[in-house]
């Protein structure tokens, strides 16, 4: 009898260990990359007028954007928030990767979603000290809170002169005191297989900001766009096709 109890106990212990092993918890890593229609863009590509589109020739001198609520959705619809918010700066190596704040089980997931910018409830003025000190704030007069993106560069105009462009995205000012949020949500509804070595890559194709669904021509664009609610909407719409996701 004693032997049997001991054996039973042992087998329970063993199986419990086993099930633990099966459901290994992982903290997915993130990597943020940039490309121009597939060609990788790194900090060393900055400043040179070497990209072209409908506008003509252009350079990139700044690229920063904010993602929030990066969330993984399991096949049973359980959601796990992996990242609360993260500011990505193409020239700041440290910002180009990060690690999930919470753990998930290895396996298959059906969707990854994130918000570009802060949603309305979380776009709390001055609430994020790390963002305040890097001047990520959106002016009070334009609705306060934080930028969604700061993308800047230079382009050659019709007479081959260098002109600056500045595509900053944030809250839309409709009229004095009337504002509309401008963040947007991206969802990748595709089977994602995660294991302990997986790295989730969030890619931005910068060229897409100019073309889909709205064609942007820097020559005819009216700057500054920050106080221009129409331009802000155009940027938001074009943002929908800018991102893609890969598992490495």
């Amino acid at each position: 009898m004693k032997k049997i109890v001991a054996l039973l106990l042992l087998s329970v212990l063993i199986t419990s260990c086993k099930t633990d092993d099966d459901s290994e918890k992982i903290s997915p890593k993130f990597k943020f990359t940039f490309n121009w229609d597939g060609e990788a863009i790194n900090a060393s590509d900055f400043n040179a007028i070497k990209y072209s589109n409908e506008t003509g020739e252009l350079s990139i001198t700044k690229m920063r954007y904010l993602l929030s609520n990066i969330t993984l959705i399991a096949n049973d619809d359980v959601e796990t928030k992996l990242i609360t918010y993260h500011l990505i700066d193409l020239t700041e190596e440290a910002s180009l990767s990060t690690i999930s704040e919470s753990t998930v089980e290895e396996g298959n997931y059906k969707s990854l979603t994130f918000t570009v910018g802060f949603n309305e409830a979380e776009n709390t003025p001055n609430a994020y000290t790390d963002l305040n000190i890097t001047n990520w704030n959106w002016p009070i007069g334009l609705g306060d809170g934080y930028h969604i993106m700061q993308y800047e560069g230079k382009f050659l105009d019709a007479s081959n002169q260098e002109q600056t462009y500045s595509l900053h995205v944030g809250t839309r000012k409709i009229s004095d005191g009337v504002f509309e949020p401008n963040h947007f949500i991206i969802s990748f509804d595709t089977n994602l297989v995660l294991n302990s070595n997986s790295e989730i890559e969030i890619k931005m194709n910068i060229a897409e900001w100019f073309k889909n669904p709205n064609l942007l021509d820097l020559n005819t664009m009216v700057f500054p766009i920050m106080p221009n609610p129409v331009a802000q909407l155009i940027m938001r719409d074009n943002g929908a096709s800018v991102f893609s996701v890969g598992i490495n």
């Binding site: 305040n132 001047n135 704030n137 002016p139 007069g141 920050m226 106080p227």
Partner: peptide, 16 residues
């Protein structure tokens, strides 16, 4: 705002 446009470099004032 765009009349002075100082805030991108020197901060929006109420935040930094």
């Amino acid at each position: 705002d765009e009349r002075g446009d100082c805030f991108h470099c020197h901060g929006t004032g109420n935040s930094n």
